[in-house]
């Protein structure tokens, strides 16, 4: 507790449960409507209209999709390892959702106030890989296995530059806690972390696309080469769980980018000094606007860039991104040493 006094145990548990309910509700709603936004924006970028039949402007389309997914037949292949087949989508979804517990949405609103925020997010990213690789294996189909293996090797090799670029942020803030990272960077020289660490930001952005299996790195579900990768054999609501996990991990990555590199819920000190009325905007709204911009960026990139080849993907991670993030780390160390 903030004041050093502790509530009774049952009250504490009740408060945590309410917090979880709020966060889960907000993010499930957002995930559903991100699908709608993606279809609408993609449609506009490809000079067509997108969904517009269900409800005004097609606004009820996500609900119609949900109903369709729920009523579809749930097929388990005869060759499949049945238990693993049923567990795998739950693993993906769970380890995507659990990430939200260590992210502060407001200086005082955080579900689990632990010291190891960033490390926990990296750990859950590592565990979520098992969901994908087991989905590929348990389907009992060669295409699924290949898709799962591709996805796992992609996520493994992009985790290294991701964590190395985060190491620069952690070194600058001298703390693993995301709240401390925001507080330190608001009072730093430039006010946001992007400017001394532009290399780290670029590396992190590319790795965020690869970690969430989004275009241009959507090799695992390459429709034209691998049918649909590890989700080939899934149907109905289990496939919906995979998509839900993907969209929620997109939100986690957007939150991490805006917290670690763009000052989170606060404005940089020079902007706040020049325009004092900005302090009247609620902190959560500022964070949400930054997150919406990055979600739009995710969709924009999907509409713009063609897909990479697998060897290009691997050599990009090991030959370009890892050296760049190490250089970024050295620059941050130099800045800390000079005491700027």
């Amino acid at each position: 507790m903030a004041l050093g006094e502790s509530l009774p145990l049952h009250l504490e548990i009740l408060i945590v449960l309410i917090k979880i309910a709020i966060v889960l509700g907000v993010f499930l709603f957002h995930a559903a409507y991100t699908v709608y936004a993606e279809r609408k924006i993609l449609g506009r970028m490809q000079a067509r209209l997108g969904p517009r039949e269900v409800g005004p402007y097609g606004l009820l389309q996500p609900i119609a999709d949900l109903v369709k997914l729920l009523f579809k037949e749930d097929i388990v292949p005869a060759e499949a390892h049945k238990t693993l087949f049923k567990i795998a989508p739950l693993l993906v979804l769970t380890f995507a959702i659990v990430n939200l517990s260590v992210i502060p949405f407001h200086p005082s609103f955080i579900i689990a106030d632990v010291n190891l925020g960033v490390l926990l997010i990296l750990a859950f990213a590592g565990l979520g890989t098992y969901g994908i690789i087991l989905a590929g294996y348990s389907s009992g189909s060669k295409y699924s296995l290949l898709g799962g293996l591709r996805s796992a090797s992609q996520i493994l090799s992009y985790e290294i530059p991701l964590s190395l670029s985060l190491a620069g942020v952690i070194l600058y803030a001298e703390s693993f806690h995301l709240r401390d990272i925001v507080e330190v960077q608001v009072n730093s020289l430039f006010g946001i972390n992007v400017f001394p660490q532009i290399l780290g930001f670029i590396v992190f952005l590319i790795c965020a696309f690869a970690e969430t299996n989004r275009a241009p790195f959507d090799l695992p579900e390459a429709e034209s080469e691998l049918v649909a990768g590890y989700i080939t054999e899934y149907s109905g609501f289990r496939m919906g769980l995979f998509f839900l996990g993907e969209y929620i991990s997109m939100y986690v990555m957007a939150l991490l980018i805006s917290i670690c590199y763009f000052g989170g819920w606060a404005f940089p000190w020079w902007l706040a000094n020049a325009l004092p009325f900005l302090k009247a905007i609620p902190p959560t709204l500022v964070l949400a606007l930054k997150v919406y911009f990055f979600i739009f960026l995710f969709i924009w990139v999907r509409a713009t860039f063609p897909r990479y080849r697998f060897d290009q993907l691997m050599s990009m991670s090991w030959k370009i991104l890892i050296p760049l993030s190490l250089i970024n780390f050295l620059i941050v160390a130099l800045i800390k040493w000079l005491g700027v």
């Binding site: 926990l120 990296l122 590592g126 890989t129």
Partner: peptide, 18 residues
């Protein structure tokens, strides 16, 4: 805590996946 993070990230998340 640091050992726990290393155990999950390095050991479970990388070596056992390999």
């Amino acid at each position: 805590e640091f050992l726990a993070a290393v155990q999950i990230i390095v050991y479970v998340g990388a070596i056992l996946i390999m």
